[in-house]
């Protein structure tokens, strides 16, 4: 057991400050354990959002020593404990209190994505036949636990506050999951270009770096979606085709 100092953000809305707590740290503990100990013994009203404590629900997102992480999956032994450990809320979303932020933006963004629409069933009994390879191709996106750490680090949101016209990397992953779903027949490409701000992403790959599920967000989700936009809107052959059929270009 060692005594470790934690600098934890306290406050509501616009105001706030770092409060220092000293807590005992034992074998195998993660940051969320330390926060719980502080809550139980020193600060009962310290607000923190969490659920499964196993890296599966994506509730306990925070910034630990400045790095966006899940508190439940960050082992204290991976941090320099000779220095105070800083725990802050995510920055891209409005603060509710202490470590809890208002992430409703992400839920609203998801509502803008057209829902799943399957092709007609393949068999008479109403079921489909799908190859395992096609299932595996989209697995990566379907692992998303909606922790929103990717959107937290995205400069379009964090620095430029484009929450209105931009659905964020988490929802690009969702769009990719639908677009590459072997049964889906919906078209989301024009929405992505026109109202969901796919073009704002300039591929800095910050989102990929922080994903706790190791989803290659930029390369595997966002870039292929951008390519689909290019194919549909900027492909010279398609454009030529549209010139000859002007009534369809509207």
């Amino acid at each position: 057991m060692a005594q470790v100092t934690f600098r934890v953000w306290r406050g509501e809305g616009e105001g706030g400050y770092f409060e220092e707590y000293t807590s005992e740290v034992g074998d195998g503990m993660v940051v969320l354990d330390a926060i719980h100990d502080i809550q139980a013994e020193q600060a009962p009203d310290l607000a923190v959002r969490w659920n499964c404590k196993a890296g599966k629900c994506g509730s306990c997102s925070a910034e630990i020593n400045g790095m966006p992480k899940l508190m439940c999956m960050t082992r204290l032994s991976s941090l320099d404990l000779t220095q105070p450990v800083t725990v802050e809320p995510m920055k891209a979303f409005p603060l509710v209190k202490d470590l809890v932020t208002d992430v409703s933006y992400n839920y609203e963004a998801k509502m803008k994505i057209k829902p799943f629409k399957p092709r007609k069933p393949d068999a008479e009994d109403g079921t489909w036949r799908i190859q395992q390879d096609d299932v595996e191709r989209v697995q990566e996106f379907r692992k998303c636990i909606e922790c929103f750490l990717c959107s937290d680090v995205c400069h379009v949101l964090r620095d430029h506050h484009e929450h209105q016209g931009y659905i964020g990397p988490a929802m690009f992953v969702k769009s990719a999951a639908y677009e590459m779903h072997p049964l889906d027949v919906e078209d989301r490409i024009s929405d992505l270009k026109e109202t969901q701000g796919l073009g704002f992403c300039n591929i800095t790959k910050c989102c990929t770096k922080v994903c706790p599920e190791h989803i290659t967000i930029t390369d595997n989700a966002i870039i292929p979606l951008k390519e689909r936009v290019v194919d549909e809107y900027y492909d010279p052959l398609t454009r030529l085709f549209k010139i000859f059929k002007p009534n369809k270009s509207k």
């Binding site: 829902p115 399957p118 393949d122 109403g126 079921t127 036949r129 395992q132 697995q139 379907r142």
Partner: peptide
């Protein structure tokens, strides 16, 4: 289970493409 698939769930497959 089939209804869940119709709503977008993707399950692992058998060789002939049915739900494993």
């Amino acid at each position: 289970v089939h209804e869940l698939e119709a709503w977008g769930a993707l399950f692992d497959r058998t060789k002939d493409g049915r739900i494993l």
